[in-house]
Design a protein around this nucleic acid. Structure first.
Length: 260
DNA sequence: ATGCCTTGTCGCACAAGA
């Protein structure tokens, strides 16, 4: 089963690219972030015609996440547990079953957190603490699960072409990186890092200053696997070629292939 | 040091992204 994550930066602006990529990459499950639409605006029909079921957690103008799956999506939860007052659409979770195997999929869009010293950065760290608590609850069930999405965290210097450029950025703050490490310390596996231990493995290239042309990227989209999922891993990768398309998202899809 | 692009918005400039 191939599970992918893609910050698509506007699903309505990117629907043609999404359909092309679905046809080529043929993922079984896709977590989308930054769909930038309310539920009613999501292009459900076009995606269903491509052979996918849809679960959406949208928001007007910003944020918004969704899960697409070739199989049924069951027991859907919208919103990250832990703060009923949080109205930002950044988390959706559901179960998919392929053959005899069932797994839980969490799709997340972690807050950017810039600029430092504002409530935005505090919100990012609070959100990461909630994610940690929720990951612990999922781990206690001992099931196969994947937490996939735009984490907005550069885990290590090797995950940036030019680490010094990010020293003052929320994505590369010690607090952000430590919170990410605390997720790994729970026993989760960073699927992309595990399969691609070297440098130059990026998922995001800024639109500005020719970042793509210079390969000035960062790795901020991650798939974290439960131990039961990590045991099934066959391969992982980044479909960076989509970043070279016309009107691209600034993120490329990342994926992991688990044994059926 | 700043903007560099891109999307969406009750557009005609701005917020937010990273």
């Amino acid at each position: 089963m191939k599970i992918a994550t893609w910050n698509i930066n506007g699903v309505k602006a990117r629907i043609d690219s999404l359909l092309t990529w679905l046809g080529e990459a043929k993922p079984d499950v896709v977590c989308l972030q930054e769909i930038k639409t309310v539920d009613d605006g999501f292009p459900v029909e076009a995606i269903e015609n491509a052979g996918y079921n849809v679960a959406v957690h949208g928001q007007k103008g910003f944020n918004g996440v969704a899960i697409l799956a070739k199989t049924r999506i069951e027991d859907i939860v919208r919103g990250l547990p832990g703060d009923p007052a949080d109205e930002q659409a950044r988390y959706i979770e559901g179960s998919v079953t392929a053959g005899h195997r069932s797994m839980r999929i969490g799709g997340l869009y972690l807050p950017n957190g810039n600029p430092l010293g504002t409530d935005k950065f505090a919100y990012k760290l609070a959100w990461m603490a909630r994610l940690n608590a929720h990951a612990r609850a999922l781990l206690a069930t001992e099931q196969v699960f994947v937490l996939a999405g735009d984490y907005n965290v550069i885990p290590e210097p090797v995950d940036a072409k030019s680490p010094k450029d990010w020293l003052g950025d929320a994505l590369f703050q010690p607090e952000s990186r430590q919170a990410f490490q605390r997720l790994l310390a729970l026993g989760l596996t960073d699927a992309i890092r595990c399969g691609h231990p070297g440098a130059g493995v990026y998922t995001f290239w800024d639109y500005q200053a020719g970042a793509w042309q210079k390969d000035n990227g960062i790795r901020i989209d991650h798939l974290l696997l439960s131990p039961q999922a990590a045991d099934l891993t066959n391969a992982s990768g980044i479909d960076r070629y989509t970043r070279g398309w016309e009107k691209p998202s600034d993120h490329a899809p990342a994926w992991v292939e688990l044994a059926d």
